[in-house]
Design a binder for these strands. Structure first.
Lengths: 126, 126
DNA sequence: TTAGGTGCAAAACCTTTGCCATCCC
DNA sequence: GGGATGGCAAAGGTTTTGCACCTAA
């Protein structure tokens, strides 16, 4: 299962070659530069397959569009309210928080997602 | 601007009467008990208006559907991976984090969103 | 009176799916 | 060969929008 195809490889390569946390549509347009007749359905299918196999991460960020990431370690994000871009934030992930909340609530907690909001450097200047 | 209508009042009342962070569709069905011929478009329109005026909060949680909250203070959430329900987590919001990340990144940070994932009490038992 | 709101339906948008041809193992 | 995958197009689900009518201020 999870056969190797040039479509899948191309999609992975695009994801690994960017830090922009792209949407499915952006990936589609990039991959088309390599495989012009690839279909959007194939991109969606492969993104899901790659998520399920754990090779990439679907980011559960705000906004309507799903965004994907080839970085598989848990890390935090920052989203600029002006340009909409998503950046990685390299602050150590605080695992203690999960334990504290688990004790207080009785929920079983596997992980957390943290997203900062504001205005990025570029947009502050302009 | 922002006229008071029975539709808008009914929507607000539904939101204030629940802690379930409902989706637009759920709100629609609740409001229909009061105003049977209200249209889904009106619900969406009012949810957006209420968000813009700051009377309610649109939660930027994972998943595809937008969810809304009449609680306007910043607080954290927990989402159960089994039943999909969203709960409030009453842990103090750590404002320091924003400052630390702002210093480290140069971004202007207004706030952050934190969401825990795991399995809720109910689903653990069953 | 009149700008803003409503209901309805159609459109827009993102994502999934069905079908059949094709390809990988 | 046979099941997984691809391309295409149609369907699905959520949200927005255009328009004519209504209503709160």
């Amino acid at each position: 299962m999870l056969r190797r195809t040039k479509q899948k490889e191309a999609i992975l390569e695009v994801l690994r070659g960017t830090t922009s946390h792209p949407t499915a549509d952006w990936v589609y347009n990039e991959v088309r530069k390599e495989i012009p007749n690839i279909s959007l359905g194939t991109v969606y299918r492969n993104l899901r397959l790659l998520c399920e196999s754990g090779e990439i991460l679907e980011l559960d960020l705000c906004g309507t569009l799903s965004r994907f990431d080839a970085r598989r370690d848990n890390h935090y994000h920052f989203r600029c309210g002006k340009c909409g871009l998503v950046f990685d934030v390299d602050v150590p992930v605080d695992m203690e928080m999960d334990k504290i909340v688990a004790q207080r609530t009785g929920f079983m907690i596997s992980y957390h997602r943290l997203e900062f909001r504001g205005v990025c450097k570029n947009c502050q200047e302009s």
